[in-house]
Write a protein that binds this DNA or RNA. Structure first.
Length: 432
RNA sequence: GGAGAGGUGACCGAGUGGUCGAAGGUGCACGAUUGGAAAUCGUGUGUGCGGAAACGUACCAAGGGUUCGAAUCCCUUCCUCUCCGCCA
């Protein structure tokens, strides 16, 4: 969420910045600023009256309760009190209105983010690794996995419908190996603390990270209701939600920054708008595994921390010897809350193209303001909003695909990347 | 699921209608003392909002109500703890 005060006081500047991302979003700013001004006026009005009431009440406390003056004063205060309640109601409505509007305004893009409409305007900033060469036509993971009997889409559909997959044998084990490998790397070498958070969260947590109120249709919501007692939790779409909210409404000790967490969780997405895209295989699923990195930093260091976090995600691909490239997303392709995002795309020989396997974003104070995540740089200093960052490192299912496609052999078997062999207990996947 | 007890500041804990943003303690910060430290003493120590500031205002789980006035009384919800039941 943007800072209301800043929007009111620097409307032109904020409008210009947001226009780079979306003209439509920028148009909502003027009415917000108007309401912001109105809000200030209402606050002054309410507080002036409250001050009168408080002073009068103090006098009442000392007055003789039987005197006629007391009775008279009481009547007067009754009126004032009613007035205050009215005024407070108006203020609350104004406040609610402005919050409602502000809650759906996306973050301002960082100055270094290129302006663009969509994917095609993203900038490739670096490429790593050699694309493998094959003496045969490389297959896609669906074909490979199905032939090996380790990926089963039909049975998944029987149980759960479209966009689910059953992993058997070596694939299930590979998934688990990847999770362990990634977590070990991040905890032992990159300094992250491992977290295993709840997979069901309250709406407030989703509001904190920005999925709500605007993107409810992408989420799965539980509905256990009995006799008026609601149990309305959402399945997490990413570990970012519970992990970032770990420090919601907290004031962190500046000396402990940056705080770095890594978490494995399954992720659940209804992907309501994605009908027809990536229908085959496990690229786009309702449920998938992901290892996430989350960092809490000071504003001064968040850019450097963003580069660092991205490098941690890249390191996973380097160790697995999977070719990839890193793109700086343009304003039109960035997520709602991000101020700057790098996508890491892995090369999939079967598809003959790069596909997203990680997205690493700096959210600035956008999430911190929503979730009230603050820190104190000096022991007696003022509490300031922290910056939050997160990135996938990596999306496990897509990593599994990348391994199948990049390490496939002419006979349809798949060589296990060296670093995973201790976890897999074998060098080649030959079937279940 | 049944029965009971609670939710007060960084923490512990007092406070049953006005003088309470809240005693006392711990912790923390600064100062004094000391060769240095411990101990001791003194001072300070929440957050948001409005304001250039002075200051004002709001907040004692959350929301609503009673009252001129609520941390204190009433209602609802949420959460925590104890015992029993159920359960991986």
């Amino acid at each position: 969420m943007l800072d209301l005060r800043y929007v009111v006081d620097h409307l032109d500047e904020v409008q210009a910045a947001l226009t780079r991302r979306s003209a439509a979003a920028a148009e909502t700013l003027a009415p917000i600023a108007e309401l912001g001004k109105k809000r200030r006026e209402l606050i002054v009005a309410v507080e002036t009256k409250a001050q009168q009431r408080n002073a009068a009440n103090e006098a009442m406390a000392k007055a003789d309760k039987k005197s006629p003056a007391f009775t008279e004063k009481r009547e007067e205060l009754k009126r004032l009190s009613t007035e205050i309640k009215e005024a407070e109601k108006g203020l609350a409505e104004c406040e609610a209105e402005v919050q409602k509007l502000l809650a759906v305004v996306p973050n301002l893009p960082d100055a270094s983010v290129p302006v663009g409409k969509g994917e095609e305007d993203n900038q490739v900033v670096r490429t790593w690794g050699e694309k493998p060469s094959f003496a045969f036509t490389p297959k896609e993971h669906v074909e490979l996995g199905t032939a090996l009997g380790i990926l089963d889409f039909e049975r998944a559909a029987k149980i759960s419908g479209a966009r689910f997959t059953v992993l058997f044998g070596a694939a299930a084990r590979l998934e688990r190996a990847l999770i362990s490998f990634m977590l070990d790397l991040h905890t032992r070498e990159h300094g992250y603390t491992e977290v295993l958070p709840p997979f069901l969260v309250k709406d407030t947590a989703l509001y904190g990270t920005g999925q709500l109120p605007k993107f409810e249709e992408d989420l799965f919501k539980t509905q256990k209701s009995d006799e008026g007692k609601a149990f309305d939790l959402y399945l997490i779409p990413t570990a970012e939600v519970p992990v970032t909210n770990l420090h919601a409404e907290e004031i962190l000790d500046g000396a402990e920054l940056p705080v770095a967490y890594t978490a494995y969780t399954p992720c659940f997405r209804s992907e309501a708008g994605s009908h027809g895209r990536d229908v085959r295989g496990l690229i786009r699923q309702h449920q998938f595994d992901k290892v996430e990195l989350v960092r809490f930093t000071s504003p001064e260091t968040s850019d450097a921390q963003h580069e660092l976090l991205t490098s941690h995600a890249e390191e996973v691909l380097k160790r697995l010897k999977l070719p990839y490239r890193v793109s700086l997303l343009c304003t039109g392709d960035m997520g709602f809350g991000a101020q700057k995002t790098y996508d890491i795309e892995v090369f999939l020989p079967g598809q003959g193209q790069y596909r997203e396997i990680s997205s690493c974003s700096n959210y600035g104070d956008f999430q911190a303001r929503r979730a009230q995540i603050r820190y104190r740089a000096e022991p007696k200093g003022k509490a300031r909003l922290a910056h939050t960052l997160n990135g996938s490192a990596l999306a496990v299912g897509r990593t599994l695909i990348a391994i199948l496609e990049n390490y496939q052999q002419a006979d349809g078997n798949v060589v296990v990347p060296e670093v995973l062999r201790p976890f897999m207990g074998c060098e080649v996947i030959r079937g279940r």
